[in-house]
Simulated scan of single mutants.
Amino acid sequence: MKRRRWVAGGVAALVCAAGVLLAALAFAQDEVPITITVTTKVTPNRAGTPKHPQGIRIDVRAKIGIPSDYDPPLVQHVDVWFPRGGLYNGAKYPACNLRLLARRGPSICPKRSIMGHATATARADTVFTYPKITVINGGATKVYFYTVLQVPARVAEPVVGDIVKLSGDPKWSYHLRVSIPKNLQIVAGIPLRLDEVHGVAGRGDWLATTSCPADHRWRWHAEGSFSTGQVVKYDGSVGCRS
């Protein structure tokens, strides 16, 4: 993923940011046999060049298996490092105002700032809930994941992702940090358990690629920080072509 890589973080972190990605990183706890399966599709799947970046659209499906007798840990932050050859063009597109977004929802945002959507299946105890997430451009250094839950209580809130360009880093191009609000970790006093998420993100060259490494693998790194003080790390890669 050259493009795929961008995806996963991006939304991969893109998408799942609203509590989705969090759970996706929660599985690595040694004492709990948690599993995750991820399928990613990037269109197109050929890398661009520095002079002619290739815009991409990412489709991510993830299934998470957590034992029913397990209390999900609370994720406070998700950090993702993207490989060289990825390009984030948030500054080129209209950005939504965070204060207006928090008060009035995505309908207040410029139409061209809406970059994707995701749906999830989660459980609050034995009650199923289906979060809906809108991926919204926040400018050169921000991306918002506006998340809406209806059960067990209505919650509607933007989750903020901070993006830092790592200009001098030989390995990574960007660092994304997503901070998870408490009211999306625990709803009506019940910790949410994520089962599945499907998200699609990308408009024009908002997310783009400029190269494919010599080994034809885009490598990325993610970390989940929990309320227990535990940090779960995950490394992944996806094939790409020039």
Score class of each variant (00 low, 15 high):
S68K: 14
D59W: 00
V78H: 02
P83K: 01
W81G: 01
G85I: 04
F82D: 13
L74S: 10
D69W: 08
P72R: 01
G55S: 11
V78G: 06
F82E: 09
R61N: 15
D59Q: 06
I66W: 01
D79C: 05
G85S: 10
R57T: 15
I64E: 00
V42G: 15
W81S: 08
I58E: 14
K51P: 05
R84H: 07
G85Q: 07
P72M: 04
A62G: 11
A62C: 10
D71P: 03
P73E: 02
V75S: 04
L74G: 07
F82L: 15
D69P: 05
T49A: 13
K51D: 12
A62I: 14
I58Y: 03
Y70S: 10
V60Y: 03
N45D: 15
R61D: 15
P50I: 08
S68A: 12
T43R: 05
P53G: 05
D79I: 13
H77V: 13
I66C: 04
Q76D: 12
P73V: 01
P73K: 01
S68V: 13
P53M: 04
R46G: 05
L74T: 09
D59S: 08
A47R: 01
V75N: 02
F82T: 13
L74P: 01
D79Q: 11
V78S: 07
K63C: 11
V42T: 14
T49E: 14
I64D: 00
V80L: 12
